[in-house]
């Protein structure tokens, strides 16, 4: 009897627990950034995600590009999209043009333009700025970003 009661009410409690869990995180989506033709080597773009986050997308300068197909189309690895969320404790980093670095005001973390840590707690823990996935499809650059709450219409 006890076993049967525990099993049934326990299952109910487990379902209640599952109910309280968030529903599978924010939905993510591939969004257009730009056509490749107008994104010149060495250029930097700011992509504002639907959540409002400013994502820095950079294309490496010509010369240190490693790939690209025979048509001269750029390869995916020439592009990098950096999150502005510090990997240490989640504050928003800002770009300091005079220092050419990203700076996190919470614990003085700093990052190089490619997102690698150069100082503060991120360097100690060797944490880079997170990167967003990029994709090239039919000559267009896409980025996968989380959607804002209520983006659905």
């Amino acid at each position: 009897m006890t076993l049967s009661l525990l099993a049934s009410y326990g299952t109910f409690a487990a379902m209640a627990g599952r109910f309280l869990l968030p529903t599978g995180g924010r939905p993510r989506r591939w969004l257009l950034v730009s056509d490749l033709g107008s994104f010149r080597a060495g250029a930097t773009r700011t992509f504002v995600a639907p959540t409002g986050e400013r994502i820095v997308i950079a294309r490496r300068a010509a010369g240190d590009a490693s790939g690209g197909d025979d048509r001269g189309a750029p390869a995916l690895d020439e592009f990098v999209a950096l999150s502005s969320t510090c990997p240490h404790l989640g504050c928003q980093v800002t770009w300091q043009p005079q220092e050419t670095r990203f700076f996190c005001p919470c614990h003085n973390g700093t990052f190089a333009p490619d997102g690698s840590p150069t100082g503060g707690p991120p360097l100690e823990a060797n944490q880079s700025l997170p990167r967003y996935p990029l994709r090239i499809d039919a000559g267009l650059l896409y980025i996968e970003v989380p959607l804002a709450d209520g983006a659905a219409t």
């Binding site: 009897m1 076993l3 049967s4 099993a7 049934s8 299952t11 109910f12 379902m15």
Partner: peptide
């Protein structure tokens, strides 16, 4: 009574499985 409760508990469990 205890047996009845045991059976009912299993039925409840069964209906939860159905819900799942």
């Amino acid at each position: 009574k205890k047996s009845v409760i045991a059976v009912l508990g299993l039925l409840f469990l069964g209906s939860l499985v159905l819900i799942q």
